[in-house]
């Protein structure tokens, strides 16, 4: 479980994350939504120990992330960042196998190699595994990053905009994967996502942020209402039920 308690971050006098608290029980997909600059990525960065918090506390399975040593956390929590521009020319398999570092400390055993292979196959990368990253399309590369994170074999996965660079088909495939990661492997996935309809279709719970504050929190049904969505994004959103899914329409 994840406990976020009164988390705050201030940049140049502005509270980018303002007194945010929530609790996430184990298992399932939780989406963080909100307008640009709402503080979603900053929140996720602090929860990932990549950014120091000004005040507050984050506990993962009861471990305070500010006090727990980094290698221990690396075996519980894997993180995909929004920006992944790697200069290194690595093959897909090499990149993914670095995801085993918290367990192998650089010496890959049979068990590690099996996990690497499993992650490659899960993301449909087996045929591309000996290609260099710079020989892949943006979507293939994004899948390689996710395979690396998955291969870390942690109970918790934080993904910052995993749909970056993905077209419709691959975006759907990625969200299905995330769903399967949660359902089949019993993992807890927290993701930052911009498309409210993807969030609605695949999440168990949606956290909405605005101006650094957590403004709404609930299952998709509660968030996908015109009133709540307009409150979050400041534009009118029509919500229709299409084939059993709540879909927000806001394009015109």
């Amino acid at each position: 479980m994840i406990d976020v308690r009164t988390l705050t971050k201030t940049y140049a006098g502005k509270r980018v994350v303002d007194d945010v608290s929530f609790h996430i029980p184990p298992g399932g997909v939780v989406s963080l939504i909100g307008p640009n600059g709402a503080g979603k990525s900053t929140l996720l960065s602090m929860m990932s120990r990549l950014l120091t918090m000004d005040s507050g506390q984050v506990l993962i399975d009861g471990l305070d992330i500010s006090r727990t040593d980094s290698p221990t956390l690396a075996r519980r929590l894997a993180v995909l960042r929004q920006e992944n521009h790697f200069v290194s020319r690595l093959t897909v398999r090499d990149l993914v196998s670095f995801g085993r570092y918290p367990h192998s400390r650089g010496r890959l055993g049979a068990d590690d190699l099996a996990k690497v292979q499993e992650a490659l196959e899960f993301l449909d990368l087996a045929d591309l595994s000996d290609r260099f990253l710079d020989q892949l399309s943006g979507g293939q590369r994004q899948r390689a990053y996710v395979a690396m994170v998955l291969c870390q074999d942690t109970d918790y996965l934080f993904l910052d905009e995993p749909l970056n660079n993905l077209d419709m088909r691959h975006a759907v495939a990625m969200m299905r994967l995330i769903r399967r990661i949660a359902d089949e492997f019993r993992r807890t996935v927290v993701l930052v996502i911009h498309d409210i309809n993807f969030a609605s279709a695949y999440s168990d719970r949606i956290l909405a942020m605005k101006d650094g504050r957590l403004v709404h929190d609930g299952p998709p049904d509660h968030i996908m209402t015109p009133g709540v969505l307009e409150d979050i994004f400041d534009i009118p959103v029509h919500v229709e039920q299409v084939r059993g899914q709540a879909v927000g329409v806001y394009y015109r």
Partner: peptide, 9 residues
């Protein structure tokens, strides 16, 4: 840096 830290390095 971010990848290194999240891998516990």
């Amino acid at each position: 840096r971010d990848v290194a830290i999240t891998l516990g390095l």
